[in-house]
Design a protein around this nucleic acid. Structure first.
Lengths: 256, 256
DNA sequence: CGGTATGTTGATCTCAGTCAATCTGGGTGG
DNA sequence: CCACCCAGATTGACTGAGATCAACATACCG
């Protein structure tokens, strides 16, 4: 298994700003510096594997990581894509239930739980920040349950595109151009479908004039409004009733 | 909308033991007593609705609650069933994104977030307990993503039955008898399918000699081992490859 | 400028969603 | 205690979304 390259063990520097936005403020950064190891990964490397024992928690500094679970015969479900500022790999009884691989070049901060845990207990703000983070991930997971349980391919792809558009790093709102950092296999495994079906959905969206594919990975979003509308509608399978979707207000933040 | 009956506003008593197992220890219970309102619900009542503003967080004292999101035309996805000791309805920007209804008679502790939040900040143990709880729910949500993204009806129903068997309240291991507290509609909406298909899966499992339906709600689990095996296998749709499942170790606890 | 991995398109077949009919269990009133 | 009722459950028939298999096309790389 490919392993990440240790850039430097604690203390570390750089990307702390990004980290701080999500987790810390002020002098607490200093305390984390004594804990984290910064790792450099190339594309396609393994960060951790399911079943593996762990003592670490991971923060994404830069790049993108796919968190997934394998089922059988190479089939897998991608639980989520993690980008800068996200955390993943919370120890669960000391064992990883998910695997994580880099989708692109990435820098990841690895912190020993053994060190992080006491710091968290001693730092209520940090603990609260972690709680918010986990709660946010929890909400995200619930949204995916909705998508996977009720949405057909078009809902799924539309939702996926809209979600990706929300990440500044991937979307140039000037040009209305979206850059997908992952391939169709990843997209398919994320949406709980196969690459062919995912691709066909893109084709259909293009035929409808909602998007335009410059290359498979570079997509111009022509009609954002219509794309958003496609996020809701009749469930997968035959439609018992045809009418259009009803807008649904979705609060996104959390824990007041 | 049916509302829960206020049994008594704080201070409260009873069911504190159950609550404490999951959240608190010792004198912290006393502090919560000053915060909670105990509500008595009949079957089918609304605890809260999506889109509704909220100031409360809910703890299930007894009974069972379905947390769901409506999509359109009465379609809904049940996100999870909550039982004694679970919490639900975390405020998200002050608005509920999910709805909750009682599946059975239930007693629910309602705590104003306004009161709970300061207590949590002042009580690191309580905050950690909440973090564990949310993390556990997060894990559960991930498991559901796997089920909905990769599992066909048989996987889903098998997983559902196994999960329900893990709840002592619903499963008599002596008789190997499972009592389902919810109807087929709830089961279907939980599994992201329709009642007919869910029912057919039960029929098939019975034909295979894995379960036996005494009544639709009372099910004898004849072959637990085979039922567990059915949790994994080829994905929904046509099977690209036939062979049997590989066991997968799933740690369930969390946060060291 | 190939060569390989990735992506798209086409054809086919199956699972599961829908509609419709029938059955049943749990509850009610006589 | 029993006949009746009805929501819930099952079964059957049909159909379409989407998974698979199979070419073919294109992008990205050295």
């Amino acid at each position: 298994m490919d392993q990440g390259l240790v850039i430097h063990a604690p203390p570390f520097e750089g990307a702390v700003e990004r980290l701080s936005e999500n987790l810390l403020a002020g002098d607490q950064q200093d305390r984390l510096r004594n804990l984290a190891t910064l790792l450099q990964y190339r594309r396609g490397q393994t960060v951790y594997s399911q079943g593996e024992e762990t003592r670490y928690i991971h923060f994404i500094g830069s790049g993108i990581v796919r968190v997934f679970r394998s089922v059988e015969h190479g089939k897998r479900q991608i639980i989520s894509f993690r980008t800068a500022g996200d955390l993943c790999g919370l120890p669960e009884a000391g064992v990883h239930v998910n695997s994580a691989e880099t989708v692109s070049t990435a820098r990841i901060y690895r912190v020993a739980w053994q060190l992080f845990h006491p710091l968290m207990l001693a730092t209520p703000d940090l603990q609260l920040a972690l709680l918010r983070k986990v709660a946010a991930d929890f909400r995200q997971a619930q949204a995916r349950i909705m998508m996977l349980g009720q949405g057909n391919i078009f809902h799924r792809v539309a939702t996926f595109l809209v979600d990706m558009m929300a990440i500044t790093q991937f979307f140039d709102s000037e040009q209305s151009m979206l850059y997908l950092p992952m391939n169709r296999f990843d997209v398919a495994d994320y949406l709980g479908t196969c690459p062919e079906t995912a691709g066909r959905a893109f084709t259909k969206l293009e035929d409808m004039g909602i998007i335009r594919r410059i290359t498979p990975r570079r997509i111009e979003i022509i009609d954002t409004a219509r794309l958003r509308l496609m996020q809701r509608g009749p469930r997968r399978g035959q439609s018992r009733s045809g009418p259009p979707p009803a807008a649904l207000e979705l609060g996104v933040s959390l824990l007041g």
